[in-house]
Write a protein that binds this DNA or RNA. Structure first.
Length: 106
DNA sequence: TTTATGGCTGTCA
DNA sequence: ATGACAGCCATAA
């Protein structure tokens, strides 16, 4: 396990996210053992092989919203997936992190 | 090798 | 609430 890449840790954390819950990049980074590398988490997700069922759509930014990607359609897909899991944005169009943010135990 | 950018975050105005 | 600044480090050129 010591030779596992940071990506592997990130993937593992993301796969750990339960359905109907979301996590922020910084949170995933911290859980993956990479505190402060929130950005890299985003890159790791972008480089995620589709071989893994990585629920990247459950990972959002600290604002509780979907980050602006180069493809606006993907943003829509992510929003739909979250909505399908019961995660709906508030009146401001943002997800209530206080309510939907994944709270891992220990 | 260096430089620039980026699916971010947190703080300050 | 929004906007600007700085810091972290991997990937691309």
């Amino acid at each position: 396990m010591s030779s596992e890449s940071s990506y592997q840790r990130i993937y593992r954390v993301v796969q750990r996210i339960p359905r109907g819950r979301v996590a922020t990049y910084g949170q995933v980074a911290g859980l993956a053992g990479l505190p402060g590398h929130a950005r890299q988490v985003g890159y790791a997700l972008h480089a995620t092989p589709d071989d893994l069922d990585l629920p990247w759509h459950r990972v959002i930014n600290a604002r509780g919203e979907i980050s602006r990607r180069h493809d606006a359609e993907f943003e829509n897909i992510q929003a739909q997936l979250l909505d399908a899991e019961g995660v709906e944005p508030g009146a401001s169009g943002r997800i209530d992190l206080k309510r939907f943010q994944w709270q891992p135990r220990r």
